[in-house]
Structures are given as C-alpha cells and as structure tokens.
Design a protein around this nucleic acid. Structure first.
Lengths: 146, 146
DNA sequence: TGATATTTGTTATATTGTATAACTATTATT
DNA sequence: AATAATAGTTATACAATATAACAAATATCA
C-alpha cells in the first residue's frame, strides 16, 4: 500500500559488498554449525582438527596462525579436541617449549566424517551455483586485499 | 626444507567455500569496523542507522528483521543510537505497542559520512576486482540458498 | 462482549568468537 | 652470563548472537 515499489528495508546497505558477504557468510556458517553439532564439533574445532590431520606434528602457534586466530584462543579449542580424544599433545624433543599436535585414529575418522557432511551441506547451500560459478566465487574472494 | 611443495597448513579447508567466505568476510568486516570506530559507530549500529535513515518511522521489529537480528538484541543497538542523539524513539499513535524510529539531523549527517568512508574502504579492499567482478561477486553471493 | 492468543518492546542470561595483557618455561642473541 | 624473544597458557573483556520470560497493547473469536 506504499507508493514505492516495495524496496527492502536494508536496501541502503546492499551497495556495500561487505554487507552481502556478511549476510551470506552468516547463513552458510550457521548451517555448517548445525551440521557439525551432532558430531560434537564446532566450526573452529573442525578447522583445527582438519589442519592437524593434514599436517600431523603441527605446533599450536602454527595452527593458530594458519587459522588466523590468536594463540591464546587456540588453547581452549585444542583442549576440547584433546578431551574428545581426537588429538594428542606431545612435547617436542628439539624445542621443549613447543607442543606437536597429532590426530588419533578416532580423530582422523571423525574429521573424514565431518568433511563429507560439510561437502553435502555445501552442495545443498550452493545448489544454484554451477561448479564454474563456485570456483569463480572462491577466486573473487581470494582477490580481496588485506 | 620439506619434501612437499610448501602447501599451506589450511589447505584441507580451502576446498570448503564457506571457509573462504568466512576468512574473506572477517578481513572485510574487521577493516570496516576500524573505519567506523573513530566515528563512534560499529557495524551493527551503522547498519541500523542506515535502515532508519532510509526508512524513517520504521519499527524496531521491522528493523531487526531487516538486519537478520533478534528483536532483543536490537534494543541495545537502538539505545546506543538514541544516546548518541542520532535517532529518536516515538511511540506509534496507531499501535501504541510499537515504536517508530526516526533519524535526527545529526544522525543523517553521520550516516552519510560513515557511508562515504565505507565506500572508500571498499574501494581499497576490492581494488583488485573490476566493477564487473564486484557485481559478479554480489550476484554469486545472492545465489546462495537459505 | 469477554476470554484468549498474539505482538511489541524489553530485561536477563548464556554462549561463542575474538582481542589483549601478563605470566612460566624454554630457547636465542649478544 | 645477561638479556631478549618465543611457545604455551591463564585471565579478562568485549561484541555478536540466541533463548526465555515478562508487561502492555492489540487481535482474534467463541
């Protein structure tokens, strides 16, 4: 009943790419969290577990840097993974300050399971994007400057 | 000195589009927050202020829905804007439960100033993307399903 | 009409993610 | 040997987000 052609209330924000990015990312990560939750994983713990599985022996500082998180915040994440018996902390022999992280057999299995669930989730979320479009999306995202 | 060709530690996560989206969005929103901070705005308060400027008289529930946030969480955001004298709360005459939000002159000016600063910030962050690529990015993001 | 349900704004509360400072044990530097 | 730097850790704080419960006002409908 308005005289305008039903403009969305957040139209003034749509000119900002960051706004579209944030809204879309929130949708995707919320869905990913729902997928991981029944497996006892959150996005951060899954991410850490994946890095540890792909690079056994990685140090905590390296892990944190790879995921773009603070060392201090990585401690609780690794604590969670250790308490679930998916990884082990092993003091490094060369540098006794450092701790090498290794996945357990259960951790490797859980990571594979969660990875497949997430790939399925992405196939659902990105169903309207062709494989080329998905690649383009990632490519465009990678062009954003720090 | 490794036998591999220096694969990034988070390589196992790069196959997930959501991971690229999250990393890129974190970069962009962190920079946007730095731009807004000296103006006394955060991303959420700027977003709310923008909606209120573009749709004067909007209700709090409509605002929250437009921004995809909970009504309860919008209260503090609107409190902040009101305390900064950028918006006013006015009880609706038709529906005395509802509160219509209106921008003040100072609020309109601040929104315009912040908007320009954010456009500059985006020109910097997305400098490596052509106008077409930026449009493509937003288009691809809009194709993601809920 | 009157009883009931719904809506609006609000408060309280909890959780997650994130950021900084400070501390220890160990290693590196000079 | 003295000093600085690094790895992991703890404590703390803040922002964003989510849910439940409430009072006041409005809507529904028997």
């Amino acid at each position: 009943m308005t005289d305008t052609t039903d403009i969305a209330l957040d139209d003034g924000l749509r000119e900002l790419i960051g706004y579209s990015m944030k809204r879309a990312t929130t949708m995707v990560t919320a869905d990913a969290a729902r997928v991981l939750e029944p497996m006892g994983l959150r996005i951060t713990t899954f991410s850490a577990l994946t890095v540890i599985c792909n690079a056994p022996g990685v140090r905590q500082t390296e892990l944190a840097a790879a995921l773009g998180m603070e060392r201090s915040n990585s401690v609780a994440v690794i604590d969670t993974l250790e308490k679930s018996h998916w990884i082990t902390r092993e003091r490094s022999a060369q540098d006794r300050r450092a701790i090498a992280l290794h996945p357990t057999t259960a951790g490797i299995m859980r990571q594979k399971q969660a990875r497949l669930a997430l790939l399925t989730h992405e196939d659902r979320m990105f169903a309207d994007l062709s494989p080329i479009e998905r690649r383009d999306l990632v490519k465009l995202l990678s062009k954003i400057r720090a």
